[in-house]
């Protein structure tokens, strides 16, 4: 067993365990911290596949910015208490069963796929910033600019939604 395979299995186990802990931990703050662990494990997977740019972006944007935003909102609303009302036990059982059935169907549909992925060593520099930047700013420059408009509208939307309503509009 080579080092890359050991790393692959370690990262897979880490991400699956952390994902389970996200769903099953009672405290929302713990959920956020486990989700950060999932994102770090996925970053490791990207590095293993030599997608270095995506690894860095995933680490900075997801594990850094977005999760801090979640943590900030949870702390802001003072939700870090253990008592969350639970759904009906039958409803939860049905949810788990239907999730398992979904997994079964997806695996059955996709399992016959040949092909393999080389890990870090050697071939493949498509994940480096040089190549991705060249393609992004030549072929995909229009979607890139449109995404800036998307960000602007999202920012405006967040400000409008988060703004306290003034007294005159509240009847």
């Amino acid at each position: 067993m080579q080092i890359t395979e050991i790393l692959f299995w370690f990262l897979t186990a880490l991400s699956l365990f952390s994902a389970l802990m996200v769903v099953f931990s009672d405290n929302p703050v713990h959920s956020v911290l486990w989700l950060i662990m999932v994102f770090i494990a996925i970053t490791g997977h990207y590095i293993l596949m030599n997608a270095q740019f995506l690894a860095i972006v995933n680490f900075i944007v997801y594990a850094g910015a977005i999760m801090v935003l979640f943590l900030f909102v949870i702390m802001f609303m003072n939700l870090n208490k253990e008592t969350e009302p639970q759904k009906n036990i039958w409803l939860r059982l049905a949810a788990v069963v239907s999730g398992g059935v979904l997994m079964l169907v997806l695996i059955a549909a996709l399992k016959d796929n040949a092909g393999a992925i080389n890990s870090i060593k050697g071939e493949g520099s498509i994940g480096l910033i040089k190549n991705l930047g060249q393609v992004l700013f030549t072929e995909y420059v229009l979607p890139f600019e449109i995404s800036s408009v998307l960000f602007l509208s999202a920012m405006v939307g967040a400000v409008v939604l988060g703004k306290k309503e003034s007294k005159s509009t509240v009847s």
């Binding site: 996200v22 929302p28 949870i74 969350e84 639970q86 949810a95």
Partner: peptide, 30 residues
């Protein structure tokens, strides 16, 4: 070392299913 792409498919399916189960079972919107 070559890692079969099947392993990544299974990892992705498992993560996706855990997400679906989480959406269906929890009541906290966050």
């Amino acid at each position: 070392s070559l890692i079969p792409v099947n392993y990544y498919i299974f990892l992705s399916i498992a993560l996706f299913t855990i997400g679906v189960v989480g959406v269906l079972t929890r009541r906290n919107a966050i």
